[in-house]
Structures are given as C-alpha cells and as structure tokens.
Design a binder for these strands. Structure first.
Lengths: 241, 241
DNA sequence: CGTCGTATTGAATGGGTTCAAGTAGCGTGG
DNA sequence: CCACGCTACTTGAACCCATTCAATACGACG
C-alpha cells in the first residue's frame, strides 16, 4: 500500500469505515487546509476553547484527555493518520476535553466553514463524517466497558488489539507488528490504572509470549491468545469489510 | 411547563441542546412513527441486530448496555423522554450494544427512511440530530473519565447531578427533586462498581445529608455539596443556555 | 401469606494503588 | 568521550478501596 498525500489520509480513513464515491473523494481532497508541524506532548486544542477549524492528523499520534483534581488524567482516545479527533467541534462549539500530540505530528487544520460547505454540496459526505463521529462514540462505549468491567490484564490486551486493527485498516500496520509510541503512563491514564500496575501486566503479557514490546515497536506474538485474553471483537470498530 | 404530545418530546429535547426553527419543529413532529408500550426490563434492540427504525422514548426510562463473560454487564447510558438512544443506527448498520427498558416505557418507533427523508429536506435538522449524537458521545467521555479516575463516592454523586440536570432540561424535574427508578444494581453496572459498595456509598451520601433516596424519589438536599463532591461541571452536556 | 426482587449488613479477601528507590536508555554539551 | 540530566521503565513492600461471599431484612404484589 502506498502512502497517501495530505488529505489522502482522510479519504483513506473514511473509506476504511464507509463507501466514498470517486467524486466525493475528490471533493474531500479539495478541502482547504493549512499544514502544521507540532512537537510531541503539546496541546492542540484545550477544554473550553471554541475552535473554528478541525485538526486532521497526517503523521504522528495524538490523544484526547480530560483532567481532574489532584492531577488525575483520563485519556479518552488515541489518534493516528486520517483521524479528525475534534470533528465534533463542528457542532459542539465548546471543547469539553483536550486534544494533544503524543509524538511529533504533522496536522492539517481545516476551517469549519470548508467542511460545512462540503457537506452542503455532498450529502453523502455528511453521512460519512457523521458516521465517523459515531464510530468514535462506539469506541468510547467499548473503552467504558473495558474500564468498568474488565481486569487490568484484559484491558491492556484489548488496547493492543484495537490499535493494531485500526493501524492495519489504514495500511500502517501488517504482519502483527506496529509502531507503539505510547508510554506506560499513557496506557495507565487511558485504562484507569496506575503506571506501576501497567508495568507488571506488561511483563506478564510478555512472559506469556502474547506480545513483545521493545522501544517503539509492538509485535503481537500470539494474536489468537491475545484476542481471547481481551475478549476482543472488532464489531464495534464498524470497519468496512 | 406542559407535557408534550408524542413527538413533541423529541422537539423539546432537541431544543434543549440546539436551536430549532418553527418550520423545522413542525417537520420533526410530522415524522412517521408507530407507538408501542413496553414492560420494564425488556430488550428493545440487541447487539448484532440491524434495525431499520429508531426508538424515541416517550415515557419511562431506558438504558444501553454491553455484556461480557461471566455475566458482567456495563450500562453505557440512561435515557428518558425525548431521547433516541439508538439514533446511531441511522449510520451504523449493526448494533454494537443492547438497548433495553428500565421501567415500563412508551416508545415511538421511527423508520430510518423517515429520518433520512427529513434530513434531506432540512439540512438544519441534520445538524441538530448529528449534534444530538455528539452530545451522546460527550456523555460517554464524561462517564469514561468518572469510571477511570473518580472514587466510587464521586462517581455516584456525579450520576445524581447529571440525571437531575438532564431531567430538569426537559421539564421533568425541578426543585432538586426527581424520579429515580434506577436500582442499586443498575447504578453499580453503570459505574463499574459492585452493588454492595453502591449501597454503602449511598448510605454515606444520605448520612452526610447530600441526598435522600426513598422508593422511586431522589431529593438533592444539598446541591452545592453534591456538585463539589462530584466535581460536576455541566459543560459536557452542551445544553442550550 | 409466600415469593421474588431489592436493599442491607458483616467479615474475609484481593486486585490494584501508593510510596519509595533504583535502573536503563538516550540526547546534549563541555 | 564521558558526565550529566531527563524521561521511561522496573522492583519491592505496605496499604486500601472495593469486591466477594453469605446471610438477613424489607417491601410490593398476586
């Protein structure tokens, strides 16, 4: 699979979750945008902001998170190329959470006006973008279920499954290997655990030969066992077959 | 505030989260539907179903939930009059969770085709319904944060705040009182706790005079203290001011 | 008046946290 | 080229919030 150019990442993502006609694809790729390079660990949009544009990830990893008292943090989602993590800002004027880079990122900032104009001209695209935000919500539901009712072991296994499948769907992972720039602290904040416990569970997963995780590289050594430990069913990702 | 008739519940709900013109309101209230009466504790739509209609609550309480192995259950949301809990099925063909009644309910079943037709004719309504699903997702984010990072005490307090504010927004609650048909088991499954612990925390909340909860009636005795205990900020509900 | 769902209580247990210390890896600059 | 500093990772031990198990009480309803 070749590497798309700029807005091509967006159409590839959209085509991974829905059908997009050639004409629609062309219209999407003609959206106005400005490209921007960002450091890792940098806020892009903050809670209470009222953005007038949305942020398409072209390269790197981002996450959304909320902060509570005493420095507690909940990571709500991770995002990769093709995602528009703040697409909801199109209809929700005030941000109820933060969006930040995890690694250095290249992003395309797309003015809301451009998107409004696009969906006015292409009702089909409106449906696809709406669907994108609905898949987003479906992932929240799955995470909520994991945090509420799965063991730490199952939760972490589940996260590995999800990220790999999402990466694979846009051609950024294959052969049960993918980039893994997410720290143990990030995993902890995403899954409602402590970093110490994440560390211990990771060692457990490694010693059982389900995964290996060195540096920034994840290798799933035993997909079936991992999926079973996670009770992972990709239905909720609503990927196009 | 008077009690709306059938689809009037929907327009009231939509007007609590966005602006709706008189013309749009009329169009919404002309949606085709069939009315249905349901028992409490009954599934309406199940995981893996492919519904062709969506379900507007007219009376009673509903919830969405997922099931895991060993009978573990995660409740994802509670719903009251005016909500369309499965609106996402408009664009996500397969259900990734279940929808069930909590109490006996009256619902209006609205064919997808009717909604598609409506949003084709009224792009403004498309935006409002999209926004409705985005608020839904915003609530998921808040719950995720609560389950992941709040104490049991804070989580339960937060749920009381949220439900009261939502009920109040559509005119079903006032004066810090509202109906409360949700059992302790339900609260436990919604917040990732055990029913035993919910019981103990409720006693604590009562003994501190933050709430009283007898039978099916919730009274918030000390709103400020409850809000503080919950770190509740209604921003995420994105209500129209 | 029995029955079933819901709520309550006590006691033992445990999954995960917290605290505290130490190690490994890596880029930077003198 | 190594010392320094920074961040991420690792380990051990004590602790605790919440669970589990088990029994009991309540209350609505046929």
């Amino acid at each position: 699979m070749t590497t798309p150019d700029d807005l091509g990442w967006l159409t590839r993502k959209l085509r991974s979750i829905d059908r997009v006609s050639t004409e629609e694809q062309r219209a999407v790729e003609n959206l106005p945008f400005t490209k921007k390079r960002l450091e890792g660990g940098q806020d892009i949009v903050r809670e209470k902001d009222q953005p007038t544009q949305c942020c398409l990830i072209l390269d790197g990893w981002a996450c959304r998170y909320k902060l509570l008292s005493e420095g507690k943090r909940q990571i709500l989602s991770f995002h990769i190329a093709g995602d528009i993590p703040d697409l909801q800002s199109l209809h929700l004027k005030v941000m109820d959470h933060n969006l930040a880079t995890v690694t250095p990122c290249t992003v395309a900032l797309i003015p809301h006006e451009g998107v409004h104009d696009l969906v006015r001209r292409f009702p089909g695209i409106c449906g696809v973008l709406w669907r994108d935000t609905l898949v987003d919500a479906a992932i929240f539901r799955e995470w909520m279920t994991g945090i509420g009712r799965r063991s730490a072991y199952g939760r972490i296994a589940h996260l590995f499954c999800e990220i790999y499948v999402k990466m694979n769907a846009i051609g950024l992972a294959d052969d049960y290997r993918c980039e893994w720039p997410i720290t143990q602290v990030d995993i902890a904040d995403a899954l409602g655990l402590s970093n110490v416990h994440v560390n211990r569970v990771l060692q457990d997963l490694r010693s059982r030969k389900l995964i290996s995780l060195r540096g920034r590289a994840l290798v799933i050594e035993n997909w079936d066992a991992l999926r079973e430990a996670a009770e992972f069913d990709p239905l909720y990702l609503h990927l196009e077959p």
